[in-house]
Structure formats: structure tokens, C-alpha cells
Design a protein around this nucleic acid. Sequence first.
DNA 1: CTGTTAGCGCTTTCAC
DNA 2: GTGAAAGCGCTAACAG
Lengths: 333, 333
Amino acid sequence: MKRQNAPTMKDVAREAKVALGTVSKVINGIPVGEEYRVKVEAAIRKLNYEVNTYARGLKMQKSNTVTLIIPDAVNPFYASFAHYIESALYEAGHFMVLCCSGAILEKEIEYLNMASQNQSDGVIALTYNDIGGHVPESLPLVSFDRIYSNAFTPRVASDNFAGGVMAVEKLLECGCAHPAFITFNSPYPGEADKRKDGYLHACSAHNLEPVYLSTLSDANLVCQITDFIRHHRRADGSLAFDGIFVNTDYNAYITCNILREMGFRIPDDVQIIGFDGITKFGITKDLYVSSICQPIPELARTCVNMVLAKDKGLLPSLTLLPVSYRYGGTTRK
Amino acid sequence: MKRQNAPTMKDVAREAKVALGTVSKVINGIPVGEEYRVKVEAAIRKLNYEVNTYARGLKMQKSNTVTLIIPDAVNPFYASFAHYIESALYEAGHFMVLCCSGAILEKEIEYLNMASQNQSDGVIALTYNDIGGHVPESLPLVSFDRIYSNAFTPRVASDNFAGGVMAVEKLLECGCAHPAFITFNSPYPGEADKRKDGYLHACSAHNLEPVYLSTLSDANLVCQITDFIRHHRRADGSLAFDGIFVNTDYNAYITCNILREMGFRIPDDVQIIGFDGITKFGITKDLYVSSICQPIPELARTCVNMVLAKDKGLLPSLTLLPVSYRYGGTTRK
DNA sequence: CTGTTAGCGCTTTCAC
DNA sequence: GTGAAAGCGCTAACAG
């Protein structure tokens, strides 16, 4: 319930003693006679007039609004992504409607329909389901990371393959002889799966025997990691690997805790590199673990540029942005 | 640019061979004859019709949208707040437009105007400036924590005073003899200032000499804390206090780092209690420090209920929700 | 109960 | 150049 008695264009026209259309032109920057413009602008100021976005939206069929769908805003990666999407949208004169789907398909579909219904100018989605079949036509969609069954949804992601390779190389540089890999992939395919490919590629390039834990379920995360480590423990208690690349900072953090609890020192006995570049409190420079960092601000800006692009026809179907390594205490300097 | 050729109510009416008004009634749940309802519903499904929110908004002067203004979505407290606001809004059939102001007054004002212009049904604000004078009339505003110069803005906050008292009592329970206090308040007044009042109150209740650092600027945070600690160091190197209540988890975390760097053990030499209840990665149960936790989900729900309340006249001007203590490794068990 | 109709506030022809 | 007038898709008031 808003702006009950807010002045309308009509009021401005009456106040300025000009025609309705003239007011509209002034507001939309269409040239009118100088004297008219001045009168209209004075009236606008006097009445404190603001255009009614709904009337305009009804006419224009657009809302200056973009919908962002993420699983939640509590996970710092998603939160940070949302933050930079908002900034980029603001720069472009748009608003962000933030939808937290809980990674539930039904909710994602519901949000998608709402976005269409609300004349959202586009949707940026980071989901764990295939929403490809549920995207209303003519609703521009940009996907972060995920591949949808949808005919043509442009995708933006970090260069995960390069990140995987980089992790191994850094581990070797830091003195590791045998880096392992741990991942818990979402069952839904995305670019993040390439972290493993990068790891395997780097192993083969360096003539190393890959050792990894790779499952589709993160149920019993701690048990799975613990079992993996135990399984690669030699008779003398030492490990078959001296470094681990873990697919996310969060999982890397968990892995560190488990290793420490088992009596290993980090980075002395085992070095760890995570992925994402999550910082403590979001605002410090402190990483939880040494990490391959995703360029979140650039990723966000790219998504926004694409979803707002005039000619969707020219959009690349996949855009990969470079990652970077940062020391975070779990590798040797 | 959305739903270019989307079917309108008119199309549905034609398809169902009923009058326009009848379709409207079916959609809005106003009773119509069974046979009509069935026909209309069939037509809606067939045409895949969806109401045009802009046309409806133009008529109804409402948008089912609530604007949340926070400084940023990177800070985990704000992010989590935003998350739970979104959930509560979703439950109530509303959308959240998230605005990150960077704590910049001009941006806050701009967002406020936009919210009004976009027919937002209300605004929930967590700001560091007095936006009281800039709230368009008839735009329902609920403030988290801050006191605005605005005539009557309902405020929701944690019971910070009780939190301050609780922090001291917990410290004493855990064996502290002399708890100190560190705070960096925003220059803009809010309920969070009461943390200090709670500390002072508890000190006087327990006959303790208060020792505190309390400034309005968080510039040179680290220097200020370091100086404070040095200043209270006795000739033998020990400290004049054996516990510190710090006004936020973030500041508490910084304080811990400084103390450790100076050679103090936590919690053996000094126990620390923060405020907020921020967890690592947002999704673990691990706190950064022992903390007085704010009930973020309840705070969010309360804000939403208030901003959506039909009769704003009955709204309490201040609602204080209880906080709780949680162990986070920086106190003795 | 149903159907007709008058706007909501704005943009945009199209005469002038 | 300006200004009158026709809708955009919907709701609600009112007449049947």
C-alpha cells in the first residue's frame, strides 16, 4: 500500500499548466521547448513528483529488476556472490530481487515463475537442479556454473580446470611429493566438476599416481574423509600423500580439522589447498585455508552484463574467468 | 522486456467464453458459479496465463515486495539477517529487494526513494545513518537496531543490555575475577550501545571496577586494542583483567589474535566473549569465539511481521528479543 | 450470482 | 515544436 495520494503526471501537468504528454517527454528526456522544460521541472520539484513504476512497467513491459536465485545467503560464497551481483545491478540502474531456494527444485521453479510474472528483466541462477525445462520463454536466464537442459542458457563460471591444475602445481612448488584430491560433487553437473579433471591432468603431466576421494554425496562428510585418510595410512602411521587439494574451502577446513585430530600437523605433515577463497568474517583478509580463489566480483559483473545484454544472440554460451592462488596458512610458504 | 505476447485476462475470457470480470473473480478467489470456475481454470491452464503484476500493482498500489537495506551482504551477520528476512517474506508471499548501501547515506536515501517509487510494500533498514528525515510518507519502515529521528519508526533489536550483563556473568562463572570490555560503537545511536550499559551494570552489581575501551571510531582497530592491552599490563607482564567482553565477534576475533601474538593464552590467561554468534562458514556450528548470540531468525521474522502488519498503529515502538550464550572455545568450560 | 464498464498512471501515436 | 486521446492489463463498482 504505497503512495496513496502521491502526485501523478496529471497533477504536474496542471501545476505547470502544460499538457500531460509534455510532462512525460520532460521526464523521459525527449526534447521539448526550453520554457516548457523549466516549468515542468519546477512543478515536479514543487509537488515532489515521482513516476509510478507500475504504470510505467505496465506500458513498457519491464521492471528494472533482475532476480537472483541462490540456495541460501548464509553460505559466504553465495552471500558474497549476491553482494557483488547487487553492486553490478545497482551500477546498471537495476534492482536485485534475491531468492533463496534452499536448493529445492519446486521452490526454484516457483521463483522462476514469479520472476516472469513480476516482469523481471532477467534471472541469474545458481542452483542444484535442472531448471532448464521450467524457464518461461523470453525470460533471459544466465547460469552460474550449472549446465541446464535448456536450449541455450549462457553460463558463467571460474576456470575450474585451470584451478585444479594450479592447485597441484602449487602443492608441488611448496614441496609436496604426492598430492591427493578430495571432492564431493553435487549430483547435478557443472563446471565445478572440472576441478577433478584439472587434478588428474596435472598428475599425469607430472607423472604422479592420482589418489582421490570423489563421491556424489556429502552425507557423512566427516566419516568419508576420515575413512579415506585411514585407508591411505601406511603401517608406520604416515600417509601415502603429503598434500591434499580439496574441492571447496569448507571441505578443506573440515579435512584440516580431521587431520589435526588424528595428530597430523598442517602444513608440516600434510599441506592443504581448498577452492573458493572464502575469508573469515567475509571482511577480513584471512582465508580459512590456502586456496584457489574464485574472482567473485568479476563473475558477478559478467553475469549482470550478460543478463542485461541487448542482443542475447551474440552471447557466448560459456565464459570462464581465471582463478588465483592465495596463501592461507595450510601450505608451506 | 518480458512476456511480450503473454495471454491477458481478455484472452482467458474469450477462451472460456465468459466475461472479463468473471475471470478476475476466479483469479482472486471471489466465489463464482462452479461451471464458470471450471471453464475459466481450464482456459487459464490451456493458455498458460499468468496475471500481470504490473497491471495489478497499478490498480492495487502494492507490489508484494519489501525492500531490505543493509550495509553489505558480505558481513556474515548482515548476510544471515538478509537470508532470514527473505525466508520470512517468502512465507508471507512477498519478495525481497535487497539493497546494499555501503553504509553511505546518499545511497540509503536513493534506495528509499526507489522503494517508494517501486511501490515497495515496506522497508526494513539496518543502516549507519539517520534516514529518519528521508522516508517517504506512507512507506512503512521498520528499523533494525537504529533509532531514527523519524516521528515513529518501530524498532526491533536484540536485548543488548541483557547481553552485556550475561557476558559478565558468564565470564565470572567461568572463573574470571576481573572482566574488561572493549567496544567500537557506530557514531549513530542504536540498541547495540546498551552492551556497554549492561557491562557497567553487571560490574556495579558485582562490585567490580569497570575497565574498558570505548571509542566511536574503529579506525586503527588493531592499534587501539593493542594500546589498551599494553596500558593494562602490570610490571610483571600479567594483565589487570582476566576476561574481556568484546562488542562483536569480529572485534573479539581480532582481540584474540592480538592477545595471542602478545603471548597470552586463550582461554587460560584471558577469556573472551564476543557478541553476535557468527559461525564459521555460516553453515558450521563452530563459532569464532564464545559469544552472546543474537536470535537472527526471530529478529528477521519479527521485522517482517511488523513491516507487513495491517494496523501500524498498534505496533510497539521497540521490540527486544532475548540473546543467549554459546561456548566457542575462548572461555573455560 | 454474472457481465459491463470506468479508470489506475503512464507512454505514444497523431493531429495540430 | 505541442497537446489530445488511445490504450497497456487489471480490479471493483454497478447494473442486470
